[in-house]
Structure formats: structure tokens, C-alpha cells
């Protein structure tokens, strides 16, 4: 995992990390006088330096970064919508008197076509976030094990979501 970044790439990563962190600092802090801002700068630099900026996964190319993030901006509302739908589904399931008949827990295995690690993780977490399905296991090659609570949830996989995530990561 510890590939030595080239110097330019390092600078890019460092500055992007710094900027993101500083944005968050401003949200956290809510104080924009020089004293607190300088504290913020020091803190962000400290973190960037101490964690040698390979922890926060930021791809070195800015263009890719922008594409990814804009993708996320489109993806997340859709995801939230899915989540709400699925949540309501499960809520109804749980509250329905004949729950025992309606649920049918099962384990599904499939191989995802997503290659990118980040993409895989995003996909897995999206699966887990949508109620009815939980990612049980995932490895680097895209083998996924999913636990689904009923047939309907199970049927939705891999489905639409995989496509969207794959598109997000340019595959």
C-alpha cells in the first residue's frame, strides 16, 4: 500500500487533503478570527504531516477527483431515495402482524464486476445501508456475500446499484 508518491503528486495530495481538512475545520470551529484560523491551519498541517497524507484516499489527478465527486453528488440523492424506500419496506415488514411469513432470510453470493477498491467499498456500504441487505463479506476480487432479509430485497441485487457505482468509478 505504501507506494512512494512522486513529488508533484505528493504536493497535490497534500494540498487537497489540507483544503478539505481546513473546510471541515471552518465548519467545526465557527470562529473566523485570526487566532482561531491560525490554530486551524496549524492543526490541519499537523494532521497532513503526521499522517503523511496517504491515509485519506485522494487520487492524485485533479480531473479524476472532480469527476468522482460530481458523480457522488448525483449518486448520493439517488442512494438516499433508495434507502428511504427500502427503509419503509423494512419498516412495514417489521410492523406487519404476519412478519414471520413475509421474511425469508437468505445468503446470496455473487461476483461484482467493479474493480476499483473504493468502488467496491462504496458498493458494499450502499448495500448495507439499504435495509434488507447486509454485506457479510467482500474481498479484493469482488466476491461478495450478502445477507438478505426477504426475497424482494434479495432480488434487487446486484441490479441497478452496481451499475451506478460502476459508472461512478468509470467502468
Amino acid at each position: 500500500m505504501k507506494t512512494k508518491l512522486k513529488k508533484a503528486a505528493f504536493v497535490t495530495t497534500f494540498s487537497i487533503t489540507f483544503l478539505i481538512l481546513f473546510l471541515f475545520w471552518c465548519i467545526f470551529s465557527g470562529k473566523f478570527d485570526a487566532f482561531h484560523l491560525s490554530l486551524g491551519v496549524i492543526s490541519c498541517l499537523l494532521i497532513c504531516w503526521a499522517t503523511s497524507s496517504d491515509l485519506l484516499i485522494v487520487p492524485p489527478q485533479i480531473s479524476r477527483l472532480v469527476r468522482l465527486w460530481s458523480g457522488f453528488v448525483i449518486y448520493i440523492p439517488w442512494l438516499i431515495w433508495q434507502i428511504i424506500l427500502a427503509n419503509i419496506h423494512v419498516l412495514v415488514l417489521v410492523l406487519s402482524p404476519d412478519m414471520d411469513k413475509r421474511i425469508n432470510p437468505k445468503i446470496i453470493k455473487f461476483k461484482s464486476r467493479i474493480k476499483d477498491t473504493v468502488g467496491l467499498v462504496t458498493f458494499a456500504n450502499s448495500i448495507t445501508l439499504t435495509p434488507g441487505t447486509i454485506t457479510v463479506a467482500l474481498n479484493m476480487y469482488g466476491d461478495m456475500v450478502i445477507h438478505a432479509i426477504d426475497d424482494e430485497s434479495a432480488a434487487a441485487l446486484p441490479g441497478d446499484m452496481e451499475k451506478k457505482v460502476a459508472k461512478l468509478f468509470g467502468e
Binding site: T17, L21, F24, W25, F28, S29, G40, S43, C44, L46, I47, A50, T51, L55, L56
Partner: peptide
């Protein structure tokens, strides 16, 4: 981890 640390420093 970054954000936790940032929050901690905050």
C-alpha cells in the same frame, strides 16, 4: 481517521 483527528484538534 483524518476527520477524527481534526475533530480532536478542534
Amino acid at each position: 481517521i483524518h476527520f477524527i483527528q481534526l475533530f480532536a484538534l478542534y
